[in-house]
Structure formats: C-alpha cells, structure tokens
Amino acid sequence: MRGLVPVRFLPRGKSRGGLVPWVIAVMMYLCGLAMVAGLSLQGALAGWASGLERKATVQIVEPDPDASRRIQRAALATLRTMPGVEAVRVLPDDEVADLLAPWLGADVAQAGLPVPALIDVTFAPGRRVDMGAVRARLAARAPGAEIDDHARWLGRLYDLSALLQTLSWAVVVLVLVATAAIVVFGTRAGLASQQRAVRIMHLMGAEDRTIAGEFQFQALMDGLKGGLGGTVLCLITLYALSRLVQGIGGGLLPQLGLGGPALLALLALPLFAALLTLITARWTVMRTLDDLV
C-alpha cells in the first residue's frame, strides 16, 4: 500500500463514486465476450472449414430405384479409382431420411417419396483435388450423379467469419475506448470533488506524481474489481452457452468452448483492465495538474 501510494490524502469510502467499478465490470464483460468470439471464431471456423474442404457429396436424384442403384455403383467405382480420394461411403437410407427429416417430416421413408442417394466423399488430407476433372469423369461414367464440393457455401462462410471477426475486434477496441473515457470522467469528477485537497498538496510541494499516486491507485482498484467481475460474468455466460451448444448436438456448430488463447485472454482481462484504468487516471491527473502553476 505504502509502496504503491506515496502519500494518502484523499478521503476513503463514500465520497468516491461506487459506480465506476460496476460500469467497468459491464464493459469488461462485453470486451471479454467479443474477445472470445473473435478468438474462437478464428479457431473454430478454420477447423470446421478444413474438415469440410476435404469433403464432397455426390447426389443422385433418380426416381427409379434400379436406375439409381446402377448410377450409384458406377459413381462408386469411378470415385474409388480417382487419385486423392481417401474414402467413399454411401449414406444408408435412414441417415438420409434423418437429414431430410427437418424439412420433409419424420416419416419421409414411409411416405414412399423418392429419396436421393447420397455418397460421402473424403479426400486425402493435404491434396488439391481437381474438382473439374472429378465432375467430368462422373458425367462420363455415371451420368445423373452430381458432385457438390461446398465451395460456394464455404466461400460465404469465410466471408461471414471474417466479417464477424472484424466486428468482434472492433467491439473490443470500442469498449476499451469507452472504458478509458469512463475512467477519464470518473477521475475528473474525483479531482473536482477533491480540488481543495489537491491544491493543498500542490502548495505543500507535492510532486505531480505524488498527487497522481492515490488517484491512480484507486483507479487501479476499480479496474481490478471491474475486470474480475466482468471476467467472472463472461466465464458464466460462456459455460452456459457451451452447455446450450452441446444440447443442440454440435456436429454443425463450431465449438464455442474456450480454447487456450481465449482462456488466457479472459484471465488476463482483469490485469489488463487495471492497467488501462491506472494509465488513464494518471494521464488525466497529470494533465489537470498541468494547469496549476
């Protein structure tokens, strides 16, 4: 305490606005969420997309079951002989029905509707596959089988994720700027309410940094308290969110869970908030004191 604050001269307790740590907590909560979103979007979408990049789906829409089976066999034979193809798998009818269920209802199979045949294709990792060639071979040997490599969809996904990431970091920056502004206002209010004490210290020969000392210590405590509060709220929210994602059955949704970097960033948040409030308060006090002779 004595080491951090050279001379104590401000009243303790109620004269200080007890609101500042709360506002900082809310700010740090938003900051933490945006930060985690930015960091985990990066990881989750990259992982997810690389999985999808290695996959393609062959679809055979043929109402006649015999014809459909023939095309299926031809397509399988063609794909298996192609370089770069690691695995092919015909989706069983009930899996296809499951996939369609959300759109067509649970009893598609019973309804006797023609169900498309789907073949999952997995490419070997780390190989560029010429989709044009695959497409041409299929057209020649198994007409009626269409391959979809998700390229268009993936492209949009990338654009979306890039946008969301940019947005997340913009939110982080804006929240930090707003936090600094709050600290400036809070410190100015503190300086104004303690104008007399500040002036007396000044006239007794206190250096500016001595006077700034107690203000910046208080700001540091506010930042630490607010930062801790925000981080705890953040962790609770993320835990609830990850439970929710698991409940949905998360094959499709990117893991929103905390990766190492995101967790580190969250745990560092209180310290970072404290540093930000300290520096901001010091700067504010020093600038105000400059107006004295």
């Binding site: 000044h202 500016d208 002779v293």
Partner: peptide
C-alpha cells in the same frame, strides 16, 4: 514548472 515543488517544500504557509 516541475522544478517548483522542491522550492515549495522549503516554504511553510
């Protein structure tokens, strides 16, 4: 300005 505090500390008011 920054040299004045040392002088003020030698003055009692």
């Amino acid at each position: 300005r920054r040299q004045l505090p040392a002088f003020r500390r030698r003055i009692g008011v």
